[in-house]
Structures are given as C-alpha cells and as structure tokens.
Write a protein that binds this DNA or RNA. Structure first.
Lengths: 185, 185
DNA sequence: GTCTATACGCTGATAGAC
DNA sequence: GTCTATCAGCGTATAGAC
C-alpha cells in the first residue's frame, strides 16, 4: 500500500515484478519499456537507470527461474535412489510452476525467452540433467514425447485463466499424478 | 522453386504461409510486415495490397484453424454414442495439430492470437462444444485441469523441435493414448 | 532514483505510378 | 500485383539536470 521504499534493490525488484507480469500478458516483444514504466508510474528514463537495455530486463526476469531449476536438479542428485530423484524433480517442478502461476509459464511460451534459454549453455545443461532424471539417460521415442507432453502441460496449467480459482493443494495433487501418469506409463 | 504463380489467390496463400511460419518463430508481436515482405521477396506495399492491416493477416491465419475445429465438433455431433464422439474429437484434434505441426501450436502460445480467439464468440462456442464432448457438460475440478493439461500438451507437442524427427504415425499413437490417459483417468 | 529532452531507426500504413 | 516514396508515431536508447 504505497510502501515508502528505500531499501536497496527494492525498486529493482518491483520493476522485475512489473515486467514479468507484462511479459506474461503481452509477451516480451509485445511489451515496451514505456508499458513497464507506466505500470510503475515512472518514466522510461527511470527504467533505464536500473537496466542498461531491454535484454537485460529479460535476462534478469529469467535468471531466478534458471537458478531454481538448477537447485531442483542439485537436490535430486543428492537423493538416494532413482525413484526418490524422480519424485524430487517432479514435485520441485510442480512447486516451481505453482509458486509463479501465470508468470513462470510465460517463460516457456514466449519466443524471445524460449530462444534466450535455448541458447544458454548453462540452462541447457540443467534441463538435460532434469530430463535424464525424469526419463533416463537414453530415452525411447515414446519417452521423449512424454517428456515434451509433461513439460508442456505443466507450463500451460500455471497460466490458464480457467484454472485461476483452483486451490493450490488440488492443483498440486492433480499435476503430480498427471505428470507421473504421462512419464511412467 | 520459383514457381510461375498466376493462379488466383495463390500469392495470398503464400503470404499466409510465410506469415504463419514467422508468427510461430517470433510471435505475432515479434513479426513485422517488413519481415513478412522480405521472406516473400517483395515490399511492404505488396503485402498491403493483399491485406488492409496486420490484424487482418492475423485473422486470416487463425480462421482456417477455427473452421477446422468447428468441423471437428460438427462431425462429432453426428456420431452415435458418447464414446464415438469422444474418439472423433480426440483424433480430430490430434490430426489437426499433426497437419500443421510447428505452425498450429503458435496459435495457442501467442498472446495476441490467444486474445483474438478468446474474444471471438464463435470460436468460444466451438471450444465449449469440444470441451463438453471431452469432459462432459458439468466437469469436476479434476476434469477441468485435465482438459487444460491435455490441450496444452497437445499444442506443445506439435511445436517442439526435439520431436521433429518423430514420424507422424508414432506421434499420432502416443498423442491419442496420452490424451486419453489424461482425460479418462 | 527520477526527471525532461532528444536522437534516430523501424513500425504500420497511405498515395500513386507502372 | 508490385513498385517507389512518404508519413506520423512509437520503439529503444542516451545526455544531462535535479
């Protein structure tokens, strides 16, 4: 409610929040710096004081998700057996989506963000680790398809407005059982 | 292959093909009329000779899909029993995606196209008919989630480049069985 | 951290010749 | 059907005052 700000990095965080919401709604290409500035009630120049370019904002928006996915893979690697690793990755991904809902899924949908992630070696490596845990190191064709289906359905589930009224616990349960059914036929 | 064209509407169809490919790759907002013109080897003015505005191109790109979905719903309504209707809609949607692969899924991913379809009453009605056939007229929360998951996974499966090498028959089989598993738990 | 002012390219779009 | 020429507006980005 009109917080007095002042803490270091707070206005930066507010900017990233606003940008993420706009990216989710209009896509990265469909979001101008003017829109971001307007939604914060400041001018474009104020935005440029925090980030040197629009690309930097896109990067800063994507990096927390990248970090969190790496953390999921790390946690899974520390687990005892294959089944535990599978469950850790699955619930980690589901929680990651549910923690962000509308916003997180935009990362996967948007062409600009998709390309950014695809061209990032670190992120590709993390994705490969997660994929290997979910369907094994040398998957069959059916396994590869299942992986894409599971990833895709997980992402859209966070975004779809028709599910906005569903409580988190229900979503979590249905998502985990559906993902499991897709990946472990 | 530098075909001599000449048939009526051919250049219009070529334009829509080019536009759809670019929309799928860069999103609607990320695609300029200049890009469409360049990919056809013509100028922007030539594009404007066929379509009065960019919105018209977006509409023209989306309408065949809308028509095909209406045809799917019509065919299903003509079927005898509930199970036949379910199977007709399911295989119709899978074939629709496989017929278009990369392109069709862009319709569901793109914010501009999504909004266009969401605000179109006719299309909403068709979608509602299809949804009702798949999960019944008054679905449970789980049914609604399953519907979103099925729709989302179907769309991304058409687009994902990692599945580009999978032959159509295999895709079709896995998609239909996966969709069924999601929708009929 | 925020502002005003400004530069300049590219966007969607129009007019009119061939 | 395609072209050249042109427009106003908005995009990203920068400079410098408060």
């Amino acid at each position: 409610m009109g917080r007095p700000v002042g803490r270091r990095g707070e206005s930066r965080a507010r900017l990233l929040d606003a940008a993420l919401a706009l990216f989710a709604e209009h896509g990265v290409s469909g979001t101008s710096l003017q829109m971001i500035a307007d939604s914060l009630g400041v001018t474009k120049a104020a935005v440029y004081h925090q980030f040197a370019s629009k690309s930097d904002i896109v990067l800063a928006v994507a990096s927390p998700v990248m970090d969190q996915m790496a953390a999921i893979a790390d946690a899974a690697d520390a687990a005892e057996d294959k089944s535990a690793r599978f469950n850790l990755v699955l619930s980690g991904l589901v929680d990651l989506v549910l923690d962000n809902r509308a916003s997180a899924s935009a990362l996967r949908r948007d062409p600009v963000l998709t390309r950014l992630l695809e061209t990032n070696e670190d992120f590709r490596a993390v994705l490969a680790r997660i994929d290997a845990i979910l369907i094994g190191p040398s998957p069959s064709t059916e396994g590869r398809i299942a992986l894409v289906l599971a990833g895709g359905s997980l992402m859209v589930s966070g975004m779809d407005p028709s599910l906005a009224d569903v409580d988190r616990g229900t979503m979590r349960g249905v998502l985990i059982s559906s993902m499991t059914r897709l990946l472990r036929p």
